[in-house]
Design a protein around this nucleic acid. Sequence first.
DNA 1: TTTATATGCACAAACGATTGTGCAAAAATA
DNA 2: TATTTTTGCACAATCGTTTGTGCATATAAA
Lengths: 356, 356
Amino acid sequence: MYLFMEKKAKNIKELAAVLGISVTTVSRVLNGKADKYRISPATGKKVLDAAREFNYYPNRIARGLRLEKTETLGLIIPDIANPFFSSIAKTIEFESRRHGYSLIFCDSLDDIQTETELLNLLASRKVDGIVLAPVGQSNKHLMDFLKRGIPLVIIDRHMPGIPIPYITTDNYSGAVDAMEYLVASGHRTIACIQGLRGISVNNDRVRGYRDVLIRNGIPVDNSLISGDDFGEENGYIQTRILMSREDPPTAIFALSNLISLGVLRAINETGLSIPDDISVVAFDDQPYSSFLASPMTTVDQPKEEIAKIAVKVLLDYIRNGSIDMDTGIMLKPKLIIRKSVKRITDRHDQAQRPHV
Amino acid sequence: MYLFMEKKAKNIKELAAVLGISVTTVSRVLNGKADKYRISPATGKKVLDAAREFNYYPNRIARGLRLEKTETLGLIIPDIANPFFSSIAKTIEFESRRHGYSLIFCDSLDDIQTETELLNLLASRKVDGIVLAPVGQSNKHLMDFLKRGIPLVIIDRHMPGIPIPYITTDNYSGAVDAMEYLVASGHRTIACIQGLRGISVNNDRVRGYRDVLIRNGIPVDNSLISGDDFGEENGYIQTRILMSREDPPTAIFALSNLISLGVLRAINETGLSIPDDISVVAFDDQPYSSFLASPMTTVDQPKEEIAKIAVKVLLDYIRNGSIDMDTGIMLKPKLIIRKSVKRITDRHDQAQRPHV
DNA sequence: TTTATATGCACAAACGATTGTGCAAAAATA
DNA sequence: TATTTTTGCACAATCGTTTGTGCATATAAA
C-alpha cells in the first residue's frame, strides 16, 4: 500500500513541512536566490531534491498574484482557420514559450465588438502583453485600451496615427513586385480584387497596384478595382462580374489568399483556364499554392519573421515598461513565380519600361 | 484637467473606498450574490453603476487563487499550422469562451517530450481542464498525468486501455467508405500511404483499407501499404517509390491531407495526371481540395463536431469533478466525391460485390 | 413597552506564493 | 575571553479576491 503512494506536495508549505524548514527558504532556493539570501548549499540541495521527489510545481496563479506578472501573453487573431494566421500563431506560441511565456489565444471572428471584449478579458486576466492582429478600420477601442498601460503590439495591419508599435508586411512593395511582373509579362488590363477598404493592408496594396500602372503609362481604370472583403465569397463574386465584362481583364491580382480561392472557383465554373484564358497573382503564399490546377504565382509574406519580431518587440516592451511608440517595422515580401501568369506578346511596341 | 482624468478603480478596494462601503459588499454584488447576502437593491445599484463608471474589472488571477479555479482551459495540439487542427482549435476556442473559459494554447510540435512538459506547464498554471490531441504512441506520460486529477479529454486519437475520455473520427468507417468507392470504381491495385504506425488513427484507417479489399475478394498486398508519417515528405517519397514499381497502383489512398500534398508533388514531377494516370483519395477535406489540379475526393472529418463535443465533455467533467472514463465517442466522417478517381472498366467480369 | 425576528452590512481569514527585515548562532577578529 | 562580523534561516506582510460568521439597527410580534 505504502509503496504505491505517490509522494506529492501540493504547495510550498507541504514541501517545507516535510523538510522541516520554512517556506521562505524553499521559495528562495526554487527561485535561484539561494546565494542572494545565503542559503547553505546543503539546504539548497535538500530542497531541490525534495521538489523533484515530491513532484512539486509552484502554483503560477499565486505567483502571478504576488509578482504582479503572469508570464502570459495574449494573442488575438481574426481567424485562426486562415492559414496565414495559423502559421503566425504557431511561431508566436513557440517564441513565447521559448522565453518562458504561455499564450492565451483568442479568435476575434473578424468582429470588432468581440475584439474589444477580448482585450478587456485579457486585461482582467492580467496578461503581461498582447499581440493583436486587428480587425476593422476603427481604432477608438484601441485608444481606450492604451490607457490601461498593457504592452500591446500590432501585426498584419498598422493603424496610422495611433501610437502602438506594429510589425507588418511591406504590402506596397509586395504589390509593386506582383504588378511589375504582370506588366512585364505583357498584361495591360489587370483587375484588382481588394479586401476591406480603408485599412492599411488594403490601401498599401492598392496603392502599389496603381503606382505600377501609372509608372508604366497604363491608365488606371477604377472599374477594374473591385471588392470589399478579404474572404472567398468576395473573390468569387467579383471574378464573375469581371469576367462578364465586354472587355474582361487578362489578369487578376487577388489581394488575399482567400480571395484567390474565390477567383479559382469562379474561373472553374466559367470553364476558363489559368493561365491561358486569364492570369492570376495572389497575395500570400500557401502550402498548397503549387498544387493548384495551375500552380499559383504568389506574394509570400514573411509570416515567421513577423511573428518572431512581434514577440521580440513585445518582450522588450514588457521588460522596459515602455517602448518607442513609433516603432513600425515593415518586412519585404517575396514574389514566388509559378505558372498562373501567361506571357502575352505585346501588340504595341511598348516603350522601354522604366525600372523601379 | 480634472475633466480629462479617467475614473478608474484598479481593484475592488478602491472601488469600495469611493463608495464608502466594504469590499465584501462590493464583491457580493458583483458576483450576483446580492440576494443571498441580503444586500439592499439601492446598494446593489450603486455598486453596479460605480463598477461601470470606474471601469472596474476584477483581477481574475486573484479570483482564481481564492476560488481554486481559473476558468481557463488548456489546448495542446501537434501542429496548429495544419488546417485540420487549426480548424478544430478555432471551434474549441469559440466554444470555451462561450462558456466563460479562456484558452491557453500550446503547440507540441509533434514532439512527445514537449507534450509532457506542456501538460505540466498547464497543470502549474492551474487550468481547469485540458483538451489534448496527443502525439506519439506512448501513453506513459498520460498515465502519470492522470494522477494529478486534472480533467483531460483526448481528441483525434484514442489510446486503447487508458482511462481517458476521447472524441475522434470513426476512422475505420471513413477508410471503408473511401475504399468501397475506389473498388466500386473498378480499382484493384490500390496503394495505401499511411501515417505514424501504431496509433489508433492509423490502425483504424489501415484496417478499413484491408477489410474492404478482403471483403471484395482482392488479395491484400502488403507492399502496397507503405509510409510511416503523416507529413508531406512521406507522401512524396512513398509515391515516388510506388510509381516506379513494375506494377504501379491505379489508385492511392492517402491517409492524411499532408500526405496527399506530397502525393500531388510526386505525381506532378513524374508528369502524370490525376485521375487519368492515377487516382487519389485523401483523408481530411480542406478548403482548397476542390481547387486542386483535379478536385480531390476526400474523407471529410467532422472537425467542428469533434471540437464541440470535446468542450462539452470536458466541461461536464470539470463540473462534476468526474466522468465515466469509458466515454469514447467516434463520429462518422463523410466521403466527398470530386474528380480525382477514374472509373475503370473492369477487364474481368467481376462477381457482384457484396454490400456493406 | 418588551422581546423576537429580519435586514444590511463589515471583520477577518484564506488561497499560495515572494520578500524586506530581523534575529539567533557560528565564525572571525580583537 | 569579549566583541564584531558573517552565516543561515524564519516572521509576517503582501498581492486581490471570496465568504463564514457576527454584530448592529430596524421592523414585527407579543
